[in-house]
């Protein structure tokens, strides 16, 4: 090694700068290591207990608190939403019932009106039908008379044309006879 001329500074290092045996067992260095270890541990303990750990603990506590609060708020909102839904359902049911009632009322009213109208129309129709029947009967009566007269005249004319003597009485009787049949 480079430092061959230099005398070893420790009984645990040979002239070439290499370790003699295990450096872990070298008594010359232990005091130094123990001193710096104690210093390091004290500094680290101070840093951790005074600054780092309280800070992390407060952050974790704050987060836990925030989470708890948020969950509580969410539960509150959920309850409100459920209440709103229930109110909505109730209003809907009420509105449906109201609508049903109005429809039934309107139906009943309309039915009553229609019944009255129908009855009126029926009565009118019946009256007109009766009148028409009377007229038809009159017309039929008139028609029968006319047919009788025409038949008698025609029969007298036919008899005369055939060269026979038309006897008004017998023609009437014959026509009456035929008309009945």
């Amino acid at each position: 090694m480079a430092s061959e001329t230099q005398a070893p500074t420790s009984s645990c290092v040979d002239a070439g700068g290499s370790a003699i045996g295990m450096p872990q067992l070298c008594g010359d260095w232990m005091g130094n290591q123990i001193f710096w270890l104690v210093v390091t541990l004290l500094v680290m303990f101070f840093i951790l207990s005074k600054i780092a750990l309280p800070r992390i603990a407060s952050v974790l506590a704050e987060r836990q608190g925030r989470i708890t609060n948020d969950i509580a708020a969410a539960e509150e909102l959920g309850k409100k939403a459920q209440e709103a839904e229930a109110a909505y359902e109730k209003a809907l049911a009420e509105a449906k019932a109201e609508a049903g009632r109005i429809v039934a009322e309107a139906k009943a009213e309309m039915k009553a009106e229609m019944d009255v109208e129908i009855a009126k129309a029926d009565a009118e129709i019946a009256a007109q039908a009766a009148e028409s029947e009377k007229k038809i009967a009159e017309i039929r009566e008139g028609a029968l008379e006319a047919v009788k007269e025409v038949a008698m005249d025609t029969a007298q004319d036919i008899v005369t044309a055939m060269g026979g003597k038309a006897d008004a009485k017998s023609v009437t009787a014959a026509v009456n006879e035929r008309m009945k049949g």
Binding site: T9, S10, D28, W29, G31, N32, Q33, L37
Partner: peptide
């Protein structure tokens, strides 16, 4: 390159 005393600043 001195000797390692108790309070020497070392690689430790």
């Amino acid at each position: 390159d001195g000797p390692v005393g108790m309070f020497t600043v070392t690689n430790v």
